[in-house]
């Protein structure tokens, strides 16, 4: 690592911190393996997304101010979550006296896979991962951050995650019938529209299972937590991993 390397702050979503520390660790280790100087600002808290999506964006001024204060000094902010990144970029209230820092932050916060492909300019990751992997394209990363082409649009197909995974030796990419349908998590939606949320999750799982996926991966643990919860309840044989875990494992 060069001494003048950009300083990257890890932004670990609160539920990853609490429930999936291994995803945080994998993200950190992966970025380090790719030669990055990474720190985890320990004062970070929830970004405020659950509040905002429930209709209380106006009550997230404090959280947002804290977020900007915590991360403003870094060159980049990277999170293993498209959803939280999208929230920070698009759904945070304007913070008086921090307008400049806030605007800058919106340009330097990245979801993990897009940071690797777009900032680090990694063209391929070499390693081995001999498994059949189904990819769940979480909506906020998919259509919010445009991490992959959207099945609704007439555009050239691309996927930042697939670009990183497809060169791994032995990895078989599972083609799904509905390539980017929502899994039904949706934050508070999972609770307020419980019946729909479960049905949507079951349908997504079915798509992966009928196409022979062995491991379901994705860029957002919130969706994976929901899907894993349903699969576990119904005793479905499918493993769940964040893309950071797969990449980190593959190149070690």
């Amino acid at each position: 690592m060069k001494p003048d390397s950009p300083h990257i702050a890890l932004f670990i979503p609160c539920y990853v911190d609490q429930f999936y520390p291994k995803v945080g660790i994998a993200t950190l280790e992966l970025l380090e393996k790719l030669g990055c100087k990474v720190s985890y600002p320990q004062g970070q808290t929830c970004c405020g997304q659950p509040m905002a999506n429930a209709g209380f964006e106006r009550n997230t001024v404090g959280t947002t101010r804290h977020f900007i204060e915590t991360f403003k000094e870094y060159d980049y902010v990277v999170a293993p979550s498209g959803s939280c990144v999208l929230h920070v970029k698009e759904h945070t209230p304007a913070i008086p006296e921090l307008e400049k820092e806030q605007a800058e932050l919106h340009h330097k916060v990245y979801e993990l896979s897009e940071f690797i492909t777009d900032v680090l300019k990694v063209e391929r990751i070499d390693g081995s991962y001999p498994h059949r992997v189904g990819y769940h394209a979480s909506c906020h990363g998919q259509r919010g951050l445009r991490l992959a082409s959207s099945s609704e649009l007439n555009e050239k197909p691309f996927s930042k995650a697939r670009k990183l995974l497809e060169n791994l030796v032995g990895l078989e990419w599972v083609e799904l019938t509905r390539t980017d349908e929502c899994c039904g998590f949706g934050g508070t939606f999972a609770v307020t529209e419980e019946a729909l949320s479960i049905q949507m999750g079951k349908d997504r799982l079915e798509d992966h299972l009928v196409h022979g996926a062995e491991i379901l991966t994705g860029g957002d643990m919130s969706c994976i937590m929901h899907l894993q919860g349903i699969a576990s309840r119904n005793k479905q044989a499918l493993q769940f991993k964040h893309i950071a875990e797969i990449l980190n494992e593959a190149i070690s």
Binding site: C14, Y15, D17, Q18, F19, C46, P50, M51, A54, G55, F56, G187, T188, A190, V191, T192, S222
Partner: peptide, 15 residues
């Protein structure tokens, strides 16, 4: 966990 705490705090009236 923090997510559930945050989510439960912000549920609409109906819930």
């Amino acid at each position: 966990g923090t997510l559930m705490r945050a989510a439960l705090k912000t549920l609409p009236d109906s819930l």
